[in-house]
Amino acid sequence: MTRTFGTAITLEEMEALGIAALDKLPAEFRAQMGDVVFQVQDFADEETLRDLGMEDPFELTGLYEGHALTERSIEMSGALPTRIRLFRRPILDEWAERGNETLEHLVAHVVIHEVGHYFGLSDEDMHALEDMAG
C-alpha cells in the first residue's frame, strides 16, 4: 500500500503499516517481542509529553514504554505491559516535510527505532548504526 499525498491515512491504516514493519523483522527478533503491545494514536497525551519535557506534540513520532530486554528481571512481574506507540499526526507531518520517501519507509523507520529501545539500544547507538548502514 504505497501512499501518496491525498486523503490522510487512518489510525488503522498506520497500525497496519507498523505491524507490516514488525513482521519484516528477522524471526529471532520477533520471537523475543511476544509481549510488546503495539498502538497508534493521533498524538502523545499531555502527561507523556510533560514527562519527556516536550511542549510540541509534533516532535514525538514514536515512543517505547517499558524496560529494555537487557534490564528485565523476575522482580518486574506485575508491571505495566511493554508497549510501542506511534503517533500518526507527527509522522504524517514529518512525511510531508521530507517529501522524498514513502510513508511505509518512514513508519518502518520509527518502528525499528522503538524496537531498538526494546533491545536496549540508546538513541546514540541507533544513530551510529544508521550512519554505518547509510
Rank of each mutant, 00 (worst) to 15 (best):
A21K: 11
G66I: 03
Q39H: 02
T48D: 11
G53P: 05
A27M: 09
E97A: 07
L80A: 13
L80H: 10
R98I: 06
R30Q: 13
V36R: 04
L52R: 12
P81L: 14
E55G: 13
E47H: 08
L22G: 04
L86S: 03
E97N: 01
D45W: 00
D42K: 07
S77N: 12
D93T: 05
R50G: 08
R50P: 02
A20I: 05
G78F: 12
E97G: 01
I74T: 12
D51G: 04
E65N: 06
A96Q: 06
F87W: 07
T70A: 15
E75I: 12
A79H: 13
K24F: 00
E55H: 05
A20E: 10
T61R: 12
E46F: 01
V40R: 01
E28S: 00
E47D: 11
M33F: 10
R88H: 00
T48R: 07
R89E: 10
A44S: 08
K24T: 06
E94D: 05
K24G: 00
K24R: 15
M54G: 04
A27S: 11
E71H: 15
M76I: 13
G66D: 09
L60Q: 09
L86D: 01
I91E: 02
H67K: 15
E75R: 14
R30L: 06
E75A: 15
D42S: 05
D93P: 00
E94Y: 08
S73K: 15
D56S: 12
T48Q: 08
A96M: 03
E47M: 08
F29Q: 09
A21C: 07
